[in-house]
């Protein structure tokens, strides 16, 4: 690769919109999302539940098949548009080039087959391997994911494993064909804190061991701080702010990002699942304001926030953009005082 021609990013998403049609009414779920992921980069996609994170991931994988769904925009992955690929080609890519793991490892495996069978299956769909070769690779993968006694664990059924082990098996399955991009939808939400830390560690190491990039979806800023190179904050289906994790954490420019950061739960002890610092909840897609979606909950709301269209993106630093009127109006938020992202106890 030549040093002076910037290589295109691994995945470049432009203006991704997803809408559902229900009873003749078009409901936009996700609006104009753009981001890119470079080689070996971990991008965090953060937002409260209902903000459209899963829908975004599913749209990229071509997994939304509800009737009345409309997906527009482009998602160029290695020069091919994932959103425009014919089914068959997308299927060949799914699981091999782009893999996905899901929030709840309890229900993500088919209950009637062993873990090993299910990993073998994925290997054999994408690669010409004999049963024996596939199983050998499966056992090797499980071992690499830190599953104890991988040969025997491969012969166990999903319900016989703990949540942490199941998520490791899930990651092993996702990585079985060496995908260049791993989409992880809240991979640690259903796990307890110690297991969560182990899984995040595993994900951080993927870049070096597997050379994979990761799109890490979470609602937990603490997870982002520990894991991600860059961060994209989603609010009610729209991008609120995006930038490198360091910039964004040191100097959040969107009041929503700032509020999220103020409410990072402690890394140990019980985690509150509501955000204590922001009163109210995000609007339902149908009731989304025409202007800034965060305006009803924002302490800085004023007249320019309310009319359509929503605030345009404002670049506040290299790769750091924010959908808020404050920086443009010359009144940016002050940098965070204690910009440490470590446990606040």
């Amino acid at each position: 690769m030549l040093a002076n021609t910037p290589a295109p990013p691994l995945l470049e998403v432009r203006d991704l919109c997803v809408s559902f049609t229900s009873r003749g009414q078009v409901i936009p779920i996700v609006e104009n999302i753009s981001f890119s992921i470079g080689d070996r980069e971990i991008l965090g996609l953060v937002g409260e539940s209902g903000s459209g994170k899963s829908i975004t991931a599913m749209a990229l994988m071509g997994l939304i098949d509800a009737p009345g769904v409309h997906v527009t925009g482009s998602a160029r992955f290695r020069g091919r548009d994932l959103l425009a690929l014919p089914d068959r080609q997308l299927r060949a890519l799914r699981g091999r080039e782009v893999a996905m793991i899901f929030q709840d490892p309890m229900t993500a495996f088919t209950p009637v087959y062993t873990i090993g069978w299910q990993i073998d299956e994925q290997l054999r769909v994408h690669q010409r391997l004999s049963r024996r070769q596939a199983r050998a690779r499966t056992v090797e993968l499980l071992g690499e994911m830190g599953v104890p006694d991988p040969a025997n664990t491969a012969n166990r059924y999903p319900h016989q494993l703990s949540g942490g082990l199941r998520q490791r098996a899930m990651i092993a399955m996702a990585l079985s064909c060496n995908p260049s991009l791993l989409i992880a939808d809240e991979p640690t939400t259903a796990l307890d804190v110690t297991v969560q830390a182990q899984i995040l560690e595993l994900m951080r190491n993927l870049r070096t061991t597997y050379g994979s990039s990761v799109l890490l979806i979470t609602h937990d800023m603490g997870v982002v701080a520990e894991t991600c190179d860059s961060t994209l904050v989603l609010y009610s289906g729209r991008v609120a702010e995006t930038g490198t994790t360091r910039d964004l954490f040191a100097h959040p420019q969107h009041p929503y990002t700032a509020a999220l950061l103020a409410s990072i739960p402690p890394m140990s002890g019980p985690r509150p699942d509501r955000l204590p610092a922001i009163p109210g909840g995000p609007p339902q897609p149908m009731e989304r304001p025409v202007g800034c979606a965060f305006a009803p909950r924002c302490a800085h709301t004023h007249a320019t926030c309310l009319p359509a269209p929503p605030p345009r993106f404002c670049t506040v630093g290299p790769g750091h953009t924010v959908a808020c009127v404050l920086p443009a109006e010359g009144a940016p938020l002050p940098p965070r005082s204690g910009s440490s992202t470590s446990p606040v106890l």
Binding site: M61, A92, R94, G95, T107, T110
Partner: peptide, 11 residues
Amino acid sequence: DFIRTARAKGL
């Protein structure tokens, strides 16, 4: 969920 996983595997 497990059907979604199966689809995500590229089956």
